[in-house]
């Protein structure tokens, strides 16, 4: 082992560490560079979809059409069994979902659709379009209750991840009581809950701002001054609170009210947040 070899490897690894190709034809180093490139791709904020764009527009629609036919048949064949599900037929997405589960025992997979929304929101955030990202996140929040239950926690978490970035920057001073009436009790509430673990009880029924009280607490605890932490997380907390509201109440009319609900909640945070960008 010579010093030269050690130095050469270090230079090559430094190139890879920086995301570049090493100036080397050593197959092992090139393999590691390829590995890193793949990880870069996997970790990039605007993630390339697993659902590729040629499939997305067609497949779900076809599946949905099949589902309509199937659900009609199901209503006849297993009418007794699915009566409960059919009774909520005024909410198409959910009734189909319920029928599908009743008939096939397997959920309709719409998770990829929500993932696509979140991916798009990531992309918009990467380009600095927060308002656009908030709209997509609102739609994602409204759609989450319609995906298979086992997928919801991960989607909610991902949504939670994105929300702080979508929030308009708040002033680094404690906010006055937000003008939006619904937001008034929230600051104290999130303080009460600030000790709660952000990971707890997420899937069942997301209560207002539960997750973001988690991030809120860490935010305010984090940055010494506390003002910024609570300021920023207050913003994201109020926005997420409303979006989670919509997803929580999603079982009743998640589509429309969810979206508008989150819209108003988010615009509430717009009002109070100062735009210092």
């Amino acid at each position: 082992m010579s010093d030269l070899e050690v130095a050469r490897d270090d230079i090559a690894l430094s190139a890879i560490a920086a995301g570049n190709a090493p100036d080397s034809d050593d197959p092992t180093l090139l393999l590691l560079a390829s590995y890193r490139a793949d990880l870069d791709e996997a970790a990039a904020p605007p993630e390339p979809l697993r659902v590729d764009s040629t499939v997305v527009p067609l497949a779900p629609r076809r599946r949905r059409a099949t589902l309509v036919a199937l659900s009609a048949a199901a209503g006849i064949v297993v009418g007794g069994l699915t009566a409960g599900a059919v009774a909520v037929a005024d909410r198409p997405g959910e009734s189909l979902y319920a029928v599908h589960v009743a008939v096939f025992g397997k959920a309709e997979t719409k998770t990829s659709d929500v993932t696509a929304l979140l991916d798009q929101a990531s992309g918009l955030l990467a380009r600095g379009d927060r308002a656009g990202a908030r709209r997509l996140l609102g739609r994602a929040a409204a759609a989450i209750p319609t995906v298979p239950e086992s997928d919801r926690p991960a989607l909610r978490r991902r949504l939670d991840d994105l929300l702080p970035y979508a929030a308009e920057p708040a002033r680094p001073t404690p906010r006055p009581t937000p003008t939006a009436t619904r937001a008034t009790p929230r600051p104290t509430e999130s303080e009460d809950r600030s000790g709660s673990n952000s990971g707890s009880g997420r899937s069942a029924e997301p209560s207002e701002s539960e997750d973001h009280s988690g991030s809120g607490s860490s935010g305010s605890g984090s940055s010494g001054s506390g003002s910024s932490g609570s300021g920023s997380s207050g913003t994201s907390g109020s926005s997420s609170g409303s979006t989670l509201d919509s997803s929580g109440s999603g079982s009743s009319g998640s589509g429309s009210s969810g979206t508008s609900g989150s819209g108003s909640g988010l615009s509430g945070s717009d009002d109070s947040g100062a735009d210092d960008h």
Binding site: L39, A42, Y165, G219, S223, S228, D276
Partner: peptide, 25 residues
């Protein structure tokens, strides 16, 4: 540390992809 939200976000934006790569690996 001094409470700049923008700095917190920039910091996270910088930290996050690297941590995710490492966690994925």
């Amino acid at each position: 540390q001094q409470g700049s939200d923008a700095a917190v976000r920039d910091l996270l934006a910088q930290v996050r992809p690297a941590v995710l790569r490492y966690a994925l690996a």
